[in-house]
Every structure is written in structure tokens, then in C-alpha cells.
Design a protein around this nucleic acid. Structure first.
Lengths: 333, 333
DNA sequence: CACCATACTTAGAGCGCGTCAATATTGCAA
DNA sequence: TTGCAATATTGACGCGCTCTAAGTATGGTG
């Protein structure tokens, strides 16, 4: 900085003012400073800057795994807005392990990120509260009571309701659910499913196949279902990966979709709309979720205010894996 | 740090030694310091640390877009290894625009990252050389001559060769190619395709449909192909997204795959192995590419040595979108 | 003319650490 | 006892910047 000042023939303070893009600097001097800087290849040192100013232009993002498109797309949304606003992104994956998540939080805090966005963390509520006490925190896709943080949530009950309404509207009664285990949204979708089935007086048809959010879970759920004496006429999968596994597993077992069984997924990941999959599914606007998460975070950083919960309404995307049940079709024919 | 020292009844220097996990500190004092630190909620300040030590435990990653699984999975590989080694990841997307990429590089350099991994950058060779002059650089999926950087490359010629050998082995002659435009690997695959066709004395059948790496390109390529008097018997798509678009577009046009046309993709992204897509494609080990990129980068950081180029050999994954051409099948029948 | 806003300089403290040299303390073996 | 290595302390400097306070120069306004 000294060198730049000397080169431009101004004081070090003025260089600092120019670098921070502060007003009350004449255009002429500004240019001379910028020219000198680029001539000398000078770049302000972000570390020194944040040390001195006690502020950072970085936010941390913690997610499960970048190789999971759901997380990658949310991170993409965060990144998009962050780069628009000149923020930097420090990214860490927790791999569904509370221990790794805690380590990630620690690393982010050591870097004094100005805030943290956690996407469906697996950590305990206590750990989350501890993190929230040290930095502004926004949770996406997980709710924890009594934590000083903002939350971006999908209205899972609504999404599940859309699925059931769609299937029941088609005439289905035997609607099974392959659940997502303990992961984000899994329990909510399962209980909304059970509630919905009872509300539609289909409680006796309710059937939950345990699973997780992987394609393998869908494959083995398919195997389990075909072993049973009777196949349900529709299956609501906890997410699209599971649905894809179901599609594959049922296909190999000679069960035609949607002729023999209708399938609905959840997430609307990119593969869902491919013509050869064409999965009926619940769309979650992931990029928006990421952007909204960062929006809340930045708002929280500079205006302290009450915790907010943003409920995002999912929508149903009807494609080709759902149709009226076989018996109904037969009756119509 | 002062406070921790006071609380533990030791000197500030000792706290520093403990925090840096240096040897020659007695276990007893170590524990006292760590206890005091956790009691006071002390966290070393990574900014101050790197300012003072002139070293950073962060690496920067620049890619196109996290919402593209290809990039997300490479980033996932980098993240995986980074977290194993205690490195932090600063991530930025360039959105295929040289301007944004330059800005991202600038931001990373201001943060004094200890190195940068660029995944198929769009920037000019000059810009890349400039970046390489300021920080250790590793490029993944793009080669630039005369730049002081390591490179992780896919052997595109080999991958394309695998595709053509497979198709020609099945009896195909009219093999078209939907190309990927100027993006990473696109030109290489196209020219390897053209070379391969000529080498197989099929030059007269060579047909390149311009496209890019999107599903839409595949859809419109399908439309273009069916408008022609004669359909090729096989199509080599520049990547899986294009292949997926082709599958969808051909399906809507009533062209059956692989009965009427065989399709081969490139990348083996997660959707490719789904039963309902089951795309024959060329597999690129993306996680490995990411890990290898970081490995090279860290090696470069602490042992200055000659530039390395690691050529990764892709493999062909034969699934259900390829079969002998119709005429041959008919002849056999 | 005094007055004042704008532009710029000077000087220096301090952000939270790492680093280093010099020195002190301890335990333990010879 | 001496000696020595392993531990620990002290004090000071500097990393590259921000920020404050106080001051100087310049030009325009009433």
C-alpha cells in the first residue's frame, strides 16, 4: 500500500480510501491510485482488511455433500446471490456426520465468517444453538425450536398433500410411502402422509417402507414391494432418488409404470424432467431457497431483528409416472 | 489469547504453541490451555494467524456453476480431500463468463488462498497465465500451453475412441455427433470424432450437429435429425445432458432407442445409470479428478517442481441405449 | 472578506496473532 | 554435584491494513 501511495504520489490514507471505494475522493486521484495499483500488481489483503475492520465479506455454507444435487443446487443459489453482492463463499461438507459438521462450524468460526448457512444439518439442537450464539445463523430445510436463527423451510405438509390429492384424485387408494429416514424432510413427509391417508379414510391402506434418500433405497423398496402378495397401486417416494430407484427396480421386476403402479417423487431434481424418466414429483425451488437463505442471513447481519421463518410452498409437477389405477382404468374401459 | 493465558496461568507464547499443535509442550499444560480456551470460548482468529504467518489453509475453487452436476461432483472431490487435510474451501462460480471468472480469481487472490483450482475455465490463456503468476494453480479439464500450472485432463481422444469402437463394433456406420460447442472437452471430442470416423473409413458418414452441453441442445438436435431424409443409426452426444435431450426428443418423435437409433453419452452423470435412462456413456471419475487436482495443488505448494499433466483415462459404460443398427439386426433375423 | 465544504495529508494506535532471541525453570541422568 | 535437554517465559516486532483525530490546501459562496 505504501508503494502504491508512493507510485501515485499520494498518501497511504488516500489509497485506503480508494480501495474501500469511499466517497469524497476526486476522480483524478482515484484513477491515479488505481493505475498505480494495477501497475504494481497490488491487491488489498483481505485478511489484513478484516483483521483491522473486524468485518468479513465471507459467509459459510455447511451442507451434506456437493455430489448430492439437492445440496449443490441450494449452494448454487447462495453462490449466485453472494457473488452479486460481493460476498465470498466458504464451503464445507458435513457428510451427514454431526462430528464433521461441528468441525466445519469451528473452522468457519475461526475464519470469522459474517454468517453461516446450514443446509439440513444433522447436529444436535444444542450444537446448533451454540453455533447460533457465535455467528448469525440461517438454517435451510431444518427447524429447531428455541434457536436464535432464521429458517427457510419447505411446507412439507402441503407438498405431501398435493401428492395425495393428486393420487386420490386419480382414484388410488392403496398408496404406499417409501420414507427418507431421519434426513431433512423425511419424518415430516412420512407423518404428513400418514395424517393425509387417515384424513382420506385410507388409513387401512397406509404402508410405510423404511428407506433413506438414496436410489438404492428405492431399488430395495421395489424388491420388498414385489415380494408382497399385493402391490399398491401408487407409491409416494420420499424423494426423486428413491423414485428413480423404484422405477428401475420395478422395471426389472416387470412392473410397468404408470400402468401397474403410479409413482410420485419429491424434489424435482434435474433428472426428473428427462423424457425417459418424466417423473411426477413435487418441485422445490432450490436456487430460490439458497438465495433466500443468504438474503435472510445478510439482513440478519445488519439489522438485528426477530427470528424469521420462511415457508416455501412447493408445487406438484405432473408428468408421466402417474395415471389412474389399473382397476379404474379397466372399469372405464 | 491473553485471556486464555491468564486463565490457564501460562504465557501467551505457550498458548500460541498449543494452538499450533507444536511439540515440546507438556501434556499437563496443554490440557490446561485447552480447558481454559474452551471455558472462555476462545477460537484462534484465522485471519490474524494467516496475516502473521503469511500462510493460509484455504484453497480456492473456480467452476462454472454448482448446479451442473459435473462441476459439483469435482468440487465434491476437492472438498473431500480438503477437509481430510484441514484445508478450507473458498468457492466461486464463473458462470461461463470470462469477466466473472477474472473477478473470482481476484477475490480469491485478495484472500491470499494458498492455491487455486480452476475447473474448465473460459478465461483467455493470458488471464490464466496472470493468475498462475500470483498463486499456485491447477487446471482441471482444460489445457493451456506455456502456463506455469498443473493440469488434470481427461483423455478425450481415448474416450471418443472407446465410443466409436463400440458403435463400429456393433456394426454402425452412420454415426452422427452432437457437439458441445466451445466448452471443456467439446472441441476435443469433436475433432477426435472426425479423426476416428476418417480412420475407420467412415468419413462420408461424419455429421456434426452443433450444440452445447445442455439438454435443450439435445432436444433441438433430435428435431434437426428427424427432419433429415435419413436418420443416422447412432448418435454420439457430447455429454449426458445432450444425450438425455436426444432421448427425450427422439422419443417424442416416435424414434425408438436403441432399436432405431443408438445413443452414447459422455460423463456418466448420476442420471445415466438410472434404469429408465440406462445410458451407454463414457465415465469420467469426477471425484477422483477433484481429489487429484487438490493433491497436485498441495504438492505444488510445498515442493516447487516441474509442471505436471495428469491424463485420466475414461472408461466406457455400456448400458441399454446402444444396440446393433436396424439393418444388421434385420439381416441377422 | 470571512466562512465553509471538499479533498487530501500526517501521525499513530491497534486488530490478533506468529516469530524470534534471550532467558529462566524444571526434571533427570551421570 | 554438574550438565543437559526439554519446557516455559518475556518482550518486542511486524504482518497489512482500518480508523480516528487533527490538521492543511483549494476553491467557491454569501
Amino acid at each position: 500500500m505504501e508503494d502504491v501511495a508512493r507510485e501515485a504520489g499520494v498518501s497511504r490514507a488516500l489509497v485506503s480510501l480508494v480501495m474501500r471505494e469511499r466517497p469524497n475522493v476526486s476522480e483524478a486521484r482515484r484513477q491515479r491510485v488505481l493505475d498505480a495499483a494495477s501497475k504494481l500488481g497490488y491487491r488489498p489483503n483481505a485478511m489484513a482488511r478484516s483483521l483491522a475492520s473486524r468485518r468479513t465479506k465471507t459467509v459459510g455454507v455447511i451442507l451434506d455433500d456437493l455430489r448430492n444435487p439437492f445440496f449443490a443446487e441450494i449452494a448454487g443459489g447462495v453462490e449466485e446471490l453472494a457473488s452479486e453482492l460481493g460476498y465470498q463463499l466458504l464451503l464445507a461438507a458435513g457428510g451427514r456426520q454431526a462430528r464433521r459438521e461441528r468441525a466445519a462450524v469451528g473452522a468457519l468460526l475461526e475464519h470469522r465468517v459474517s454468517g453461516i448457512i446450514m443446509v439440513s444439518p444433522r447436529m444436535s439442537a444444542g450444537d446448533i444453538a451454540a453455533a447460533a450464539a457465535e455467528a448469525p445463523l440461517v438454517m435451510v430445510s431444518r427447524a429447531v425450536r428455541g434457536v436464535d436463527a432464521d429458517t427457510v423451510l419447505i411446507n412439507e405438509a402441503h407438498g405431501t398433500g398435493l401428492v395425495l390429492d393428486h393420487l386420490i384424485g386419480l382414484g388410488h387408494e392403496a398408496i404406499a410411502h417409501v420414507d427418507g429416514g431421519a434426513g431433512a424432510g423425511g419424518p415430516q413427509r412420512r407423518s404428513a402422509y400418514l395424517r393425509g391417508m387417515r384424513a382420506a379414510r385410507l388409513g387401512r391402506h397406509a404402508l410405510v417402507i423404511p428407506g433413506d434418500f438414496t436410489e438404492e433405497a428405492g431399488v430395495s423398496a421395489a424388491a420388498e414391494l414385489v415380494r408382497r402378495p399385493e402391490l399398491p397401486t401408487a407409491i409416494f417416494a420420499a424423494n426423486d432418488m428413491v423414485a428413480a430407484g423404484l422405477l428401475g427396480g420395478l422395471d426389472r421386476a416387470g412392473v410397468a409404470v404408470p400402468r401397474d403402479v403410479s409413482i410420485v417423487g419429491y424434489d424435482n431434481i434435474s433428472l426428473a424432467h428427462l423424457a425417459h424418466v418424466s417423473l411426477t414429483t413435487v418441485d422445490q425451488p432450490r436456487t430460490e431457497m439458497g438465495r433466500l437463505g443468504l438474503e435472510l442471513l445478510l439482513d440478519r447481519i445488519d439489522n438485528r431483528r426477530a427470528n424469521q421463518v420462511r415457508l416455501i410452498e412447493p408445487t406438484l409437477v405432473v408428468r408421466s409416472t402417474t395415471a389412474p389405477p389399473r382397476t379404474v382404468t379397466a372399469a372405464v374401459a
